[in-house]
Structures are given as C-alpha cells and as structure tokens.
Design a protein around this nucleic acid. Structure first.
Length: 769
DNA sequence: CTTGTGTCTGTTTTT
DNA sequence: CAGACACAAG
C-alpha cells in the first residue's frame, strides 16, 4: 500500500484517500488526474473498503476506459473483471442487454451510430412527405438528440408553435420506427437505461447497493441526462447509495456544442452538499513559459471555478510565434522547424501539429509528404465507418436482427441484384400498411419485385443457417463470401484496399473474441442455453426478484451481438498503425487528454481560431478560449504558434487578422519570429517592429520574400498586411486596386466591417506584426 | 437500373 | 477546392 501512495503530492494524496463521501476534484491540465482516479480505486480495494464488484468507473471515451484498466491492472494483483469500467454508452449497453425484457427491447437490439440515425430520419421524412427544406434531417436529428439528452420523450414536450409541434411529431414517429426495428441510437442507450432504473425499484436498489463507489472522469463534459443517470446510480435523494467521486476541469470544457453542461459541476457540489473539494493545481507537464501563457489566457474567462496552475519546472524556452505570409508558408515553416527538431534528436511522435478544423490539415499534410516526413493524421474515417465495412456489418446485422431496416436498405441491392427503387417502394408500402419491417414485408410483395426480394431473404436465411454452429471469426469470413462483397470488389478497379479492409474484419473478430473472453469455438449466434440465462429473473438476498448484469458478457450477449455493439460503440480507432515513429496531426479537440514535448498550434487567425461561428453563440468565445487553453497545455517543452496572412478556404483566398488570443498572452513569454527579409522589404517608412532584432530560426525565407514581392502593389502596401486606422482600429488589407497615387485598398476591420480607403488620403499605420 | 452530370455547402466530436 | 447528394439521361 505504501507503494501505491508513494509518489503523490499532498493534494493528490488527500484526494485519493478521501472518506467514502461525494467529492469533487478540480484537476488542472497535467495535474495527474487519471493517476488520482486509478490510484483511488486501487487504494479502496487494497484497504478492503470495497470489493472490485463495488466499483463503477465511467469515462467518455473508450481510450480513457482502456487506459484506466491498464493502469489498474499494473497496480493491483487481482483481476479487474468484477469492476465496471467503461463509457456511459458501453455500460448502458451492458445493462440493457441484461435487462432487455424489462427495457422492452428485443434481445438482439442493435445500436445506430449517428450516420445510421440520420438515414433513419431521412427515410422517415420521405415516408411522411415532410418538406426537407423546412425540416432539414440534420436539424431534426439535433432536436431529437437534444430532447433525449434532457430526458424528454415526445409526449413530454410542450411545443412552441407549429414548427416545433411538427418536430415533436417526427420525434414520436422516429421512436416508434426504432422500436419496430429493434434499434437504439446513442442517446437512447442512456435514456432507456435511465428510465428502466427509474421505473423499476428493485433493479434500481440492487445497483445502488452494489456500486459503493462511483467515479467519473471528465465530469465537465457530462450532459444533463448523464448527470441524472449518475445521480440515480448513486442513489441521490434516497438512503444507502454509493459515493460519487467526480474529477473534472471546468477550464477544459470544450463540448458545450454537443450538450455538455459545465454547470453540472456546481450543481453536483450543491445538490450533493459536497464537503470535499480538492484542487489539483500542481502541473507536472509543462515548462514555465507555456504554463504562464495558459494561465494568463484562461484568466480572461469570466465563468470559472478558479484555479491556477503552477510548476516547479524552470521557465524553459519562450513560446515561438510565427506570422506566415500564406497557409503554404505556414506549412513550410512547420516543416523547417520540425526538421530542426528531428535533427536535434527529437522523435517524430513527440511533435504534434494542432489545428482548429480538419480542413486545415491538407496543406500541412501535403508539405509533410513532399518533405518526406512520416506523419499520422488522427480523426477522419474510422475503420467501422468505411463504406465497405459498413456493408459487411449490415449483412451481419440482418443475420442477427432482420428487422433493422437501415441495414436492409444498405445492402438489399449491394452488390447489385436487380432490386431497384421501384421494388423498394412497393416493399415500403407493404411494410407501412402492415406496420412491419421491410424484411417481414417481403412475402407481401408479389410479381418480379417479390421474386428478387425473396432471393435476398433466402440469401440472409441461408447465411444464418450455414453459420449456425460457427465461431465468430469463421462466421464473418463466410458472410463476406456469401454476401458477394468480396467478389464485387475484386472486379472493381480500386477494390484492393477495400478487400483488405474486409479481410481485416476476420482478424478484428478473432481479436474481439479473445479479448472479450468468448470461448474461441463457441457458436456466434445466441444459443438456447445463453438465451435461458440472460433476461431471466434471479432472486436477491431479500427475496426480491431482480436481474443482475454480473453474469459474464457471453451469457448476456451472443458473440455476434456483442461484436456488432462493439462495432457501433468503438468505431475502430482509426486503424492502429502504431509502429512507425510519425509526426502527430490532429484537431485541438482530439488532442485533449494527450501530451507532447513539442506542439504547434496553427491557424491562429480571427474567424478560424476563434472560429467565426462561435462568436455568434453566447459563451462561444469563452469556449474557444478554453479550447486554446487545452491546446497550449498539451505542450511539455516547446510550444510554437503560427498564423497566416492569406489562406485558401472553400476555394477562395481569405485574409484574416491574427487571433485575438495573442493579445491575451504574456508578452515576456513569447518570442516573435518572422522572416528577416520582410523587415527590410518595407523598411522605408516602417516603425521599428518587435521582430527586427530577432534572428529567425529558419533560413529559407527567400522564396517567401519573393512571393511577398509579387503581391506588393500600390504605394508600398501589400495584400494581407496588418494595418491600424485611427477610427476603425486594426485591420487587414484584403485587396488593392489601382496604383501609385490612385491606389485604393479594401481593408477588413473586423468588427468595424470592410472599408475601401484611398491610400494617399487615409492615415494608416503599418503594424509590425 | 445504372451511370454521369450538376448543384450545394461547407466547425469542433464521442458514443 | 472537394465531397455529398439529387436528378436526368442512357
């Protein structure tokens, strides 16, 4: 036990060893929050305060859950099986599988990802002749998810006006449709579980008594439903619930746009009368200048719980800031600096390039590719989201639950088997008329359409029969073949990659089976034995009939159902190409929770970062600032920031001002770099600028200088240049018309709007940077 | 029923 | 610039 608590600082130690009461840990970036969370679990178990089965630990991402598992098994000699550690969605899935009857779901219910959900909605709009101009599918989806995240069913919503009334109506139709098909969306997993436990007292009490300690990571990211779910689990308001231990950082709340409510932190403190609030402010990650920058920036936010990070590490190097003439030049600069770092012995995986939006990665990728630097882009298409993989999954889904209409429509004519729009329309009409799924409606369609559809049904039935006794990997392999997908891609000219992805599914299944503890040879379909066990009542100590999800997963879910859940819930982390030492590229959002020795934050321009659409929502700028805070605090040793005067966006060149966030950083922690050539170019009437005496780190600025020269126009002013005007403040020259004494410049003054000024008349000041 | 052409529309992301 | 999607012609 000494060992466990050995290297903790006083605050960490206090947090880990708190009495079994509700606690809120405000953990700053890099303050060891995962460590506190896992050590607390280990300590609770090791001191005999709780058995592993009494632990419930909830995270947002699978990655975080896995990380916690790994660290725990390193700390504890015992097996971690009995503990429930997972994502909100994963844990709900498990509960619903076990209690599927009480939750009014079919045993083989399937999970819709956002894409699937959207396609269900589109279909619904069409079937009900809803004008999708007036009710865009995306908006309806947002409405439905928003309602579910507030814990509201359609019949509980009091609509404002006719538009919302329509949306509520669609929400109801959508839920009915999902129920018929036996599918649930992500929000439904949570809401269904919440409702199940609210309604079913013995079940609720069973879990409340079982989970003595509930621990939540990234608590600032919880939405209202998740918070209520936690309250229910912890038995808030009733006696004898577990202790809720929440860890979070309000300064890193960057998911308000998808319903996260930072207010849950103060609500928790209030509602649970939290006595134990501990702040972890000692940062073990970043050098001084980096932390100073982060602290000063975030101090500009008004709604904070208040927290300031400190470090024992020295100041380290200042933050380097670079103004590039264009997005291309910015990319070039990143390459040069990275090369220098690599030459100094830095490993590529310790260099991260962060950007606000994915579209920005292209230019940088291109430059990295040309320079021959290996890189890895995070985000983007995940394995289970690839078209060919989704097709294969759809076949498997139909074998497990044929009433999943989305799966049916996805592959009924893929590979093509002569079933076109007309046949589908007939089928949809029949399904509608009888209130059944498309699959079940096939016998009601006569004629040629009926024949080819019948063929498809026989294909699915055949595959199911054929694979009845097979283990999962074998089943997947046979399904790939019987579906005709493999043959289809063999004849397609760019099918080689797709075939490879499909074949990878067999290994994914093999790996899944061994990791999740399914016997290698066990039949993948739900056997009669398993069916008898899952969902059947057991009796607890008080003689109350309850169901318990203690049963190992294999008796709760068939391997096939489990694999399909896994595919929906885990999307397959981008394909694990870990091996190579590569530079890391990702959005700031996906960098949360990670750290690197060297970090580039790019595209720091008004409109991009902070993003223009965020300035319209209230609290938007503060969320952008928190995002910037997250970005800065990813860096351990060296931090670079850059922005570009001109940038291609949506096929046209844009001229942005530098980000307002630069004004919020401590000048003494920054070192402005810029090409030396640029300063003599306009030396004539230039005021001395901050970078005149700075020796640039990069030597290859000639090309850049030439580009600038080409863009020079009227009266020594240049497109993209930053200027100041007595009345309009700071602006950027967007265009110059005419020349010499007639030159007029179009200038973007940000909040003061776009102005056209006569350069010989207007009093403009050139801004050094 | 398939294939090609044109129009539109562009944040952030996990589950 | 590019991808997604709808619609029209083969």
């Amino acid at each position: 036990m000494q060992n466990l608590l050995h290297n903790l600082n006083p605050e960490q130690l206090a947090a880990v060893t708190l009495p079994p009461q509700s606690a809120l840990i405000l953990a700053g970036a890099g303050s060891g929050k995962t460590r506190v969370l896992t050590t607390r679990i280990a300590w609770l178990i090791q001191t005999g305060q709780v058995s592993p089965a009494g632990i419930l630990a909830v995270t947002f991402t699978n990655k975080a859950a896995k990380e916690m598992m790994t660290r725990l098994s390193a700390m504890l000699p015992i097996n971690t099986r009995g503990m429930w550690i997972g994502t909100f969605h994963g844990l709900c899935n498990r509960l619903l599988r076990t209690h599927y009857r009480d939750a009014a779901l079919p045993q083989t219910f399937q999970i819709l990802d956002s894409q699937d959900q959207l396609s269900v909605i589109k279909r619904l709009l069409k079937a009900n002749n809803v004008d999708d101009e007036k009710f865009p599918p995306k908006e309806v989806q947002y409405f439905i998810n928003g309602a579910k995240e507030q814990g509201l069913r359609a019949n509980k919503i009091d609509p404002y006006g006719p538009d919302e009334r329509k949306k509520v109506e669609l929400y109801q139709l959508y839920d009915d449709q999902c129920q018929r098909e036996g599918v649930v969306d992500f929000a439904e997993l949570l809401l269904r579980t919440y409702e199940l436990l609210s309604r079913n007292q013995p079940l609720r009490e069973h879990y409340q008594q079982r989970f003595k300690h509930i621990l939540v990571d990234e608590f600032q990211d919880t939405n209202n439903l998740q918070y209520n779910w936690l309250k229910l689990m912890a038995g808030h308001g009733s006696q004898g619930g577990g202790a809720l231990f929440a860890v979070g950082d309000d300064d890193q709340s960057i998911y308000a746009f998808r319903g996260a409510n930072v207010g849950n932190m103060s609500a928790f403190e209030r509602e649970f009368k939290v006595q134990n609030l501990i702040k972890l402010e000692q940062n073990y990650r970043s050098h001084g200048h980096i932390l100073d920058a982060a602290n000063m920036l975030i101090a500009n936010n008004s709604k904070r719980l208040g927290k300031n990070l400190r470090t024992d590490a020295g100041h380290g190097e200042p933050v380097r800031v670079y103004e590039a003439s264009s997005d291309l030049a910015e990319a070039q600069w990143i390459i040069e600096e990275s090369k220098n770092l690599i030459a100094d012995g830095v490993s590529r995986s310790e260099i991260a390039v962060l950007y606000r939006s994915n579209a920005q990665s292209r230019v940088i990728e291109h430059a990295l590719f040309s320079a021959g630097i290996p890189y890895h882009v995070y985000g983007g298409l995940r394995y289970f989201q690839r078209a060919e993989v989704k097709h294969a999954i759809a076949y498997l889904q139909l074998m497990d639950n044929p009433h999943n209409d989305s799966a049916f429509l996805r592959v009924v004519n893929f590979p093509t088997r002569g079933i076109g729009l007309r046949s589908i329309e007939q089928l949809q009409a029949a399904a509608e008329q009888h209130g059944i799924s498309l699959y079940a409606a096939v016998p009601y369609v006569a004629g040629k359409a009926g024949t080819s559809l019948g063929g498809f049904v026989r294909l699915i039935e055949g595959a199911r029969f054929e694979t009845q006794q097979m283990a999962l990997p074998e089943l997947v392999r046979v399904t790939l073949e019987m579906s005709g997908l493999l043959t289809h891609y063999q004849t397609e000219k760019e099918g080689a990659d797709r075939i490879e992805n499909l074949e990878q599914m067999v290994s994914a299944a093999t790996q899944f089976v061994s990791e999740e503890g399914y016997g290698q040879g066990a039949p993948a379909h739900m056997g009669p034995k398993a069916q008898a066990q899952a969902g059947d009542a057991i009796v607890n100590a008080d003689g109350v009939e309850i169901y318990d999800a203690d049963a190992p997963l294999p008796t709760v879910m068939s391997p096939l159902s489990a694999f399909l859940s896994h595919a929906s819930l885990e999307a397959g982390d981008n394909q694990a190409q870990a091996g190579q030492d590569a530079l890391q590229m990702m959005t700031v959002h996906s960098a949360k929770g990670l750290e690197f020795d060297n970090v580039f934050i790019t595209g720091l321009e008004e409109g991009l970062f902070p993003h223009e659409s965020s300035s319209r929502e209230d609290g938007g700028i503060e969320e952008e600032r928190r995002l910037m805070y997250v970005a800065i605090t990813r860096a351990r040793k060296r931090l670079y920031m850059s922005f570009a005067q001109t940038r291609m966006l949506h096929g046209q060149t844009r001229y942005n001002m530098k980000s307002r966030f630069f004004d919020e950083l401590p000048e003494e922690s920054l070192k402005w770099l810029s090409p030396k050539v640029q300063s003599h170019w306009f030396a004539s009437n230039n005021r001395k600028s901050a970078w005149d005496d700075v020796v640039p780190l990069v030597g290859s600025d000639n090309a850049i200088a030439q580009k600038i020269a080409q863009k020079s126009a009227g009266a020594g002013w240049r497109i993209g240049e930053s200027v100041a005007h007595g009345k309009f403040g700071e602006g950027v020259i967007v265009n110059i018309e005419g020349s010499g004494g007639n030159a007029r410049a179009q200038i973007n003054f940000g909040s003061h709007g776009m102005k056209v000024l006569d350069l010989s008349v207007a009093k403009l000041e050139r801004l050094g940077r």
